Simulated assay, not measured.
Amino acid sequence: MSSINVKIINQSSNPLPEYGTPGAAGMDLRANLESPVVLQPMERTLIPTGLFIELPDGYEAQVRPRSGLAIKQGITCLNTPGTIDADYRGEIKVILINLSQEPQTIQHADRIAQMIVSPVQKVQWESAVTISSTQRQDGGFGHTGKS
């Protein structure tokens, strides 16, 4: 498996994001909070991480929900996956929403999301008058009738 070097500034007291297992694709992002944040049911908020990164050209980072947080507490990320472009230099922040029926508390250092770094393929548009036919054609959501 190949790796790339990514510059990072960590203004939090949390450890740097790391892979939980050798086969993991995502690195956990942790909350950087001065005090706990209570999310009411259906409330959303922006949680800082204290992290700033410099991705190489041709790469992006995606911020995605953590499955354990979603199933255990009903907390997930909005704008999923959130894209961090190679030219973004601001703090990484995560939009969380509480989909449970009870208030949920986010503490400093809680693992709130995961981040995946991937190469980006740029598109060169080619104007056309027709495009090829497929079995699906223009069938949208639920077009196969299968659940």
Results as ranks from 00 to 15, higher is better:
residue 91 E to P: 03
residue 91 E to L: 06
residue 108 H to S: 07
residue 113 A to Q: 08
residue 106 I to V: 14
residue 95 I to M: 12
residue 113 A to M: 05
residue 105 T to Q: 15
residue 112 I to G: 00
residue 109 A to Q: 13
residue 114 Q to M: 13
residue 93 K to A: 14
residue 99 L to A: 02
residue 100 S to F: 12
residue 91 E to T: 09
residue 88 Y to I: 09
residue 93 K to N: 07
residue 99 L to F: 11
residue 94 V to K: 11
residue 107 Q to T: 07
residue 97 I to T: 03
residue 115 M to G: 13
residue 98 N to P: 09
residue 98 N to T: 06
residue 88 Y to T: 12
residue 102 E to V: 04
residue 107 Q to N: 14
residue 98 N to G: 02
residue 114 Q to F: 06
residue 99 L to V: 08
residue 97 I to M: 08
residue 94 V to E: 06
residue 113 A to F: 03
residue 88 Y to E: 15
residue 112 I to S: 00
residue 98 N to R: 13
residue 89 R to N: 14
residue 111 R to E: 13
residue 111 R to I: 10
residue 103 P to Q: 12
residue 90 G to L: 04
residue 90 G to S: 09
residue 99 L to S: 06
residue 95 I to P: 00
residue 111 R to M: 07
residue 109 A to H: 11
residue 101 Q to K: 11
residue 85 D to V: 12
residue 111 R to S: 11
residue 101 Q to L: 07
residue 85 D to M: 09
residue 110 D to S: 07
residue 91 E to W: 12
residue 106 I to S: 01
residue 110 D to F: 02
residue 90 G to P: 03
residue 85 D to I: 13
residue 100 S to C: 11
residue 97 I to A: 02
residue 113 A to I: 06
residue 97 I to G: 03
residue 89 R to Y: 14
residue 102 E to W: 01
residue 91 E to F: 08
residue 113 A to Y: 09
residue 101 Q to G: 10
residue 108 H to I: 05
residue 107 Q to E: 15
residue 86 A to N: 12
residue 112 I to F: 02
